[in-house]
């Protein structure tokens, strides 16, 4: 077992590319094994689910590139979902209002995380976990435990595929964000600075990078994207649920790690995460098809992260 693990690891020189081979293999197997896999409705659904996770995973990729993590993603998504539905109340007239409030809430959460990490000197893990319970308190008070409201026609239309294609509005939004995210990571000074801070915070500071600013921007990006993922989910779920975001912490982290971004920071990127997102969505889809229980799903999802950590980062990671 030991030698086998090492052997596989040797071949994973570039996990962010290798993951596409896994994806291709899994896709082929799935297509062969289940006849209806390529059907329009199924593919459209798959890509739609991937979009929500994919949008949330952009922020998570940034956070993990910094060598941190954002554990407030899940509850931020729920907050976006709850706020969205309750403000929209089924009418497109409220779209503008919902958009502004949700954007502000996202910025507030991200800035809060940044503040806690940089000025209160809290470990990012702890800070975002604490923020998570604050957000939970907020949406519990807001909904009094029973979320109300519902989607508007426009939000629903974003989740319906146009004509006979598999492409939905949310999918298009995701693709646009993918292009922007990859561009920002690879081609801009901000992207380079994120990698630099993630690789070596002290050296980054010595090189004149304003690390505090980088932290704030990254966590604001993460929170804003997560809260909008939750908002978009309103169109998908129709109404809002208090546990709509629950799985997104584990799944977004798993997608990023599958995609080859190192948990120690400074290595990886969204290209890998993209494949990671598709793999996670296919896996969840598969588990639903074979009708596995919630218990089994949790075990598999948690286990996958551990196995991947063992494969990718065995000698690199340390707390």
């Amino acid at each position: 077992m030991e030698t086998k693990v090492l052997h596989i690891k040797e071949n994973l020189k570039k996990p962010e590319y290798f993951v596409y081979i896994i994806l291709a293999v899994m896709f082929t197997v799935a297509v062969i094994a289940s006849p209806g896999y390529l059907q329009r409705a199924h593919m459209s659904g798959l890509l739609k689910t991937a979009s929500f996770l994919g949008i949330a995973a952009i922020g998570q990729t940034f956070a993990i590139l910094l060598g941190d993590i954002d554990l407030s993603v899940a509850n931020t998504i729920t907050l976006g979902n709850v706020l969205g539905a309750q403000i929209l109340m089924g009418s497109d007239a409220n779209l503008g209002k919902a958009f502004v409030i949700i954007l502000l809430a996202g910025i507030l959460i991200g800035a809060g995380n940044g503040f806690g990490i940089r000025y209160l000197k809290l470990d990012p893990f702890i800070m975002t976990l604490g923020m998570s319970s604050v957000i939970e308190g907020v949406f519990m008070i807001y909904t009094q435990g029973a979320p109300k409201g519902k989607t508007s026609p426009f939000m629903s239309s974003l989740c319906r595929s146009a004509g006979t294609g598999v492409v939905t509005g949310v999918f298009l939004i995701w693709i646009v964000l993918v292009v922007i995210a990859i561009f920002v990571m690879k081609k801009t000074t901000f992207g380079r600075n994120v990698f630099a801070v993630g690789a070596n915070k002290t050296a980054a500071r010595f090189s004149g990078i304003n690390t505090t600013k980088i932290y704030f921007i990254v966590y604001i990006i993460s929170a804003v994207l997560a809260i909008f993922a939750g908002f978009l989910l309103v169109g998908y779920t129709g109404t809002s649920y208090l546990d709509v975001g629950v799985d997104y912490n584990d799944n977004s982290i798993a997608a990023v790690i599958i995609g080859g971004t190192a948990v120690t920071g400074g290595r990886g990127g969204y290209l890998g995460t993209l494949a990671g997102v598709m793999l996670m969505v296919m896996l969840v889809d598969f588990l639903t098809i074979v009708n596995i229980s919630e218990a089994g799903r949790q075990m598999i999802q948690g286990g996958i992260i551990i196995i991947l950590l063992l494969l990718y980062n065995r000698d690199k990671a340390s707390h």
Partner: peptide, 26 residues
């Protein structure tokens, strides 16, 4: 996982937390 394989304690225990929760639910 943390001592022998030197994985980051936070992320390992976070994931194991999901696994243990799953087993409890099972």
């Amino acid at each position: 996982l943390i001592g022998r394989f030197r994985l980051a304690a936070l992320i390992v225990t976070l994931s194991m937390s999901t696994v243990y929760g799953g087993i409890a639910l099972y």
